[in-house]
Design a protein around this nucleic acid. Structure first.
Length: 519
RNA sequence: UCCUCGGUAGCUCAAUUGGUAGAGCGGCCGGCUGUUAACCGGUUGGUUGCAGGUUCGAGUCCUGCCCGAGGAGCCA
């Protein structure tokens, strides 16, 4: 108990986290000190317990078993919760935070998370010293702590992975958190977004962001394993890449510069040096989009391939996207289960994907319009040839397929200036979007690029783009021009689809949206 | 930019025709040896988004503004 309470008599030099700081033993001390007196260990030692000199002395909060018979060194191994199954029967140490607690009188259930997972720690009054039980009873949500205890299998134990719990033998409180604002229950979006820096600790957010990390890892692994080389393209750019969307303007030493909306044009230069490349980074759109599918800052991977036509591009995309999905199913099944994601449709995501033309898509939409009795949907699905799809159109189209579907051959007037015209049909382009199923909509957009310098010049003129700004880009068509293609995949939209979320703001740690730049 | 909905305790929400602002959760105190957002008893907690107006009386009606959400457009 004493260790949990404020210690007003301690040295005033202590500027550590709170009044409830107590001595924290160096984690994995045995591993850190393989040979006594090794000089390099001093830094480690200092950094990991810098507040020790002003901390109160260690008290009886720990089990005697934790001490080494000779030097008092802890012998207990510190583990991460994700590996808990490998330590059944062992006494281990967990370093983390209290996610939730259930007080059953003489029994305390502590839900502890350590970043790698969630595990239930059970404290029986009879089995631990009075101080340990009292410390457990006083724990508040999000208090930081070090728990020691014996791992056991128990089907009743919740957690990620579930089915294992820790019978507590010792407990140290690093900081007793005060009035943590987020409860493990329903909250409003505004409140949660204002507390995004804390919200990411919650189970669902933790699961989503771990899936995101796996999506990113899968993206890099697949590309790196298929002859692509990562080329970072500039974030500060002199002009709009595609000329249309609103960009964020910055002051570049007195000249305007813009935050990038795509690295594609630079990648078209890079392929002539490296063959297959990708850039992967943040992308910015100053559009005043106010929907669940838009961020002003989002992450996009953009592969670009020399000697590649539209058909080859679609083959690459379907293999790429399938790999990402399958990798998540394999490595993040626990997180997807926690999110309640029905993975049966994701399991079907394997090549080949269905392919329909823009014209066929219009026919499908006309059919849906005819069949629907909802006047509002009828109105939303109105579309003239030449217009790009809106989100209601995409939603209806994807409902027809249980895999992602390629829609190719978009009208020239609806797409960017650099897209190769369809042979014999100059009114459409060799472009393709990939629409995710279940209404998730566009996750990639790509095309074969114009390789003929004269046609490119003509397009720049037609789009009223200043030739001077594109001289370097035109150069690429003069020195060994080849057919080439590329696409961009939106990371947040992909994660939203894989996780089965209804808003992409949860797929990035700190979303930037029209009305939100805090925190 | 347009359309729709919303803003009441730290959080999630109630509040009849305009008539004493309430509940659950959280916090605090107590009880409980298998809880899964535990449960039970007690207790704490309010400038009803802001500024005006109507009225004996406004959370409620009117005007203006601010903030947020969903959708459209734009886009990945």
């Amino acid at each position: 108990m004493a260790v949990m309470m404020p210690t007003p008599t301690r040295s005033p030099c202590c500027r550590s986290v709170s009044h409830s700081v107590i001595f924290v033993p160096l984690p994995r001390r045995a591993e850190l000190y393989p040979a006594r007196g090794a000089g390099s260990n001093r830094d480690l030692r200092r950094s990991s317990r810098s507040h020790r000199p002003c901390s109160p002395p260690r008290s009886g909060v720990q089990s005697p078993r934790e001490r080494h018979p000779r030097g008092g060194l802890p012998m207990i191994k510190t583990i991460r919760i994700e590996n808990v199954a490998q330590h059944v029967g062992e006494e281990v140490r967990i370093q983390g935070w209290l996610y939730n607690r259930t007080d059953k009188g003489k029994l305390q259930f502590l839900q502890v998370r350590d970043g790698s997972g969630f595990v239930q720690c059970v404290v029986f009054k009879k089995e631990v010293p009075e101080e340990v039980f009292e410390a457990a009873r006083r724990l508040t949500q999000e208090s930081s702590l070090v728990v020691t205890g014996v791992v056991r299998q128990d089907d009743r134990a919740p957690g990620v992975p579930g089915g294992y719990e820790i019978g507590v033998t010792g407990l140290e409180v690093i900081q007793l958190a005060q009035d943590y604002p987020i409860q493990p229950k329903e909250h409003g979006v505004d409140f949660l977004m204002d507390h995004r820096h804390l919200w990411i600790r919650s189970r669902r957010q933790w699961a989503v962001l771990r899936v995101r990390a796996t999506v990113i890892r899968a993206i890099r692994d697949w590309l790196d394993d298929h002859g692509f080389i990562n080329m970072d393209t500039p974030i500060l750019t002199p002009a709009a890449c595609e000329g249309t969307t609103t960009l964020f303007e910055t002051d570049y030493f007195g000249e305007p510069a813009y935050l990038t909306q795509s690295g594609q044009l630079y990648n078209e230069a890079n392929i002539y040096a490296f063959g297959r490349v990708y850039c992967f980074g943040p992308t910015f759109r100053a559009e005043k989009s106010k929907t669940r599918r838009h961020l002003t800052e989002f992450w996009m991977v953009e592969p670009e391939i020399a000697f590649c036509d539209l058909d080859q591009l679609m083959e690459i995309e379907e293999q790429f996207v399938s790999y990402i999905v399958q990798r998540c199913l394999k490595e993040r099944s626990a997180e997807l289960a926690l999110l309640g994601r029905d993975t049966s449709l994701l399991e079907k995501v394997e090549p080949p994907f269905p392919r329909i033309s823009y014209d066929e898509a219009l026919e499908i939409l006309a059919e849906v319009r005819e069949q629907t009795e909802d006047p509002q949907l009828k109105e939303l699905l109105k579309i003239e040839w030449g217009e790009d799809f809106g989100s209601p159109h995409e939603t209806e189209l994807t409902k027809r397929f249980d895999k992602p579907v390629f829609v190719y051959g978009y009208p020239t007037i609806a797409k960017a200036f650099y897209m190769e015209p369809w042979p014999g049909r100059p009114e459409i382009t060799k472009s393709v979007d990939l629409l995710a199923p279940e209404g998730y909509g566009e996750i990639t957009g790509g095309s074969e690029r114009i390789s003929d310098p004269d046609l490119l010049l003509k397009r720049l003129e037609e789009w009223n783009l200043p030739r001077e700004a594109f001289e370097w880009y035109i150069d690429l068509r003069k020195y060994g021009s080849v057919p080439h293609s590329g696409f961009g995949l939106g990371v947040e939209r992909t994660v939203t689809w894989i996780c089965g979320l209804n808003h992409l703001r949860e797929t990035i740690p700190f979303p930037r949206m029209l009305k939100r730049v805090y925190p």
